[in-house]
Design a binder for these strands. Sequence first.
RNA 1: AGAGAGGUGGCAGAGUGGUCGAAUGCGACGGUUUCGAAAACCGUUAUACCGGCAACGGUAUCGGGGGUUCGAAUCCCCCCUUCUCUGCCA
Length: 447
Amino acid sequence: MAAEIKRLFLGFRIRFFRSADMLQVAVLKENTAAVLAALAKRHYPTAEADVQAVLDLDQRRRELQTGHDQAQAEANELARQIGGLMKTGQKAEAEALKIRTAELKQQTKTHSDELADTERQLQQLLYKLPNLPHESVPEGRGADDNEVVREWGAKPELTAEAKPHWELIEQYDIIDFALGNKITGAGFPVYKDKGARLQRGLINFFLDEARAAGYIEVQPPILINEASGYGTGQLPDKEGQMYHATADDLYLIPTAEVPITNLYRDDIVATERLPIRNAGYTPCFRREAGSWGAHVRGLNRLHQFDKVEIVQITQPENSYAALEVMVSHIESLLQKLELPYRVLRLCGGDMGFTSALTYDLEVWSAAQERWLEVSSASNFETYQANRLKLRYRPEAGGKTQLLHTLNGSALALPRIVAALLENNQTAEGIRLPQVLHSYCGFETIGG
RNA sequence: AGAGAGGUGGCAGAGUGGUCGAAUGCGACGGUUUCGAAAACCGUUAUACCGGCAACGGUAUCGGGGGUUCGAAUCCCCCCUUCUCUGCCA
């Protein structure tokens, strides 16, 4: 799901976040060498030039800000004096002051135009820079360089007659792509009978587990406005990946992370509310333009799918511990579903743009004989919080500081369903894992 | 969807062109008082940026954006949003 995260987070915003940077300028300034080293791990090509340009633009920005403020201060003072003169009827004196005022007005206009321009350039540049990888992120350029942290479970031995899930769903008539084609289009399957009930059971199972793990359930809107799209980074660059309802200028969410994380946009969170833990089930919509290929048959890639997402917002010193706990929660789901899986720590070259550290979880799909990504859990540190203006106050009366945001899928349904069907197929039908029996109201499909 | 009325600091609520970041009340925090607490009294109580070691000073922000003006919470335009009535609907 590294690619997925990348798709989701490449977009950036300028207009809504005048002073929000992606990487904080102060960090670049004070730790230039460390930043450059971290960007090298990402194989980010123009790091040195970009960082230098950021520092130069920031310098320019300060100068303009100072100039603007001084001119404006003088203008404000003159306005006060003119007010006093008008009151006492000294018209001529007031008119004399207006001459200087007109000058200052021109000056502040020039300054603020230039300032806005400089800030825009600075933003664009900062938005180009990816997050800095955590020190534990392995070196590497692509998926082959990801580090397998651990594997769990034994891969099932299937018979020669074993089928991939796209055949099983037809055999048992539980998921119907042709019907979806008729009413919507490709990639919008219809779940029927036990297929539909399995979906519902999985969603309830995931939500109940999340609640037991301390996550507060939320049910957010699945259409979001432009500001939210920019808040978590889907817009504007990845606009083409979201469905856009142009009549109302709203977007269908590609993941619940967008509305849930944006819940806390512009907040200064009271310390006693931390950490924030939310879980939410939503359908997710992705246009997946240009990403279809021969290996994405059946449930492997859809335009609409269901997912339970978990989100955490923590104090900086707690975020990496929180990430580990999130991953073990996701693992516990897979273990209860009795699906063999492995945990990958993504390398610098494969990691999503906004992430500092990402774990992907993949289940073994026995009939396809490949690993399927079913979850991606990331710590974004302050990268998203900076854009969201999501802060807290470490000490009463002290300065605000950015929080850390994290999220993970727990879990995305389609590939889980694919693996459940394939791995558990027998001559007598598909035997569901014990934990799902009460959730679904049946134990087998077919047979 | 149509008509009308609103959107001000943590909350409530003044303010309709001039020194207003904004009265007053409540809440919160600190202090005085008290054995302790309540009450009373005094004080503090937004965010961001710029300058400064700091103290502090400056700038911006009264739903969002633009405009008029020497000067805008206050006037004008557009948008968002809340409430009431009508319409429609699950």
